[in-house]
């Protein structure tokens, strides 16, 4: 695991979930993010990190790069967004292409999985995916 001001590099393992969540919490505090946003940030990073652990576990490079920054934008009334990014070097995988789960199914038919990415897209104000230099870069932003 390594960390500088902007990024945390950490192995794609569920054992590292607590460290990843702690990194985001600390960054949110440093960046003076409103405390009411914190549970959403923790949810988003858990879903994204475990998505990588479960579906895109890289073979050549084990680490996942996680970032958390404030960014200027014209899309938010306050002029700024808090953006979380995850980058892994696994096979191409765009979470935004996953089908929306069927939320109206009754208990017997309701699928157990598929809620993680859906929760991320519903909680965030903006999500984007790009395949860049052999990596999957996923960015999730919240208006401040």
């Amino acid at each position: 695991m390594s960390q500088n001001n902007d990024f945390l590099n950490i192995g794609a393992s569920i054992d590292n979930l607590a460290a990843v969540t702690e990194y985001i919490s600390n960054r949110a505090e440093t960046l003076l993010v409103p405390i009411m946003l914190l549970p959403k940030l923790e949810l988003v990073i858990e879903e994204l990190f475990l998505n990588i652990v479960n579906h895109a576990n890289p073979k050549s490079r084990k680490d996942v790069e996680i970032g958390c920054t404030r960014q200027k934008t014209e899309k938010a009334p306050g002029g700024e967004m808090l953006c979380i990014s995850t980058r892994d070097w696994g096979p191409e995988f765009n979470p935004l292409q996953k089908e929306k789960p069927l939320l109206e199914e009754d208990i017997e038919k309701r699928a157990i999985g598929g809620l993680g990415v859906y929760l991320v897209t519903e909680m965030a104000d903006h999500c984007s995916y790009v395949r860049q230099d052999g990596s999957n870069l996923f960015t999730v932003c919240f208006k401040l």
């Binding site: 549970p39 923790e42 475990l50 309701r110 157990i112 809620l115 993680g116």
Partner: peptide
């Protein structure tokens, strides 16, 4: 409960299916 993720929802759904 202060926090729940999709993993928690899955556990609740699995339990509810078994209960039914």
């Amino acid at each position: 409960l202060e926090y729940i993720s999709s993993a928690g929802l899955r556990s609740l759904l699995t339990s509810a299916k078994k209960a039914k």
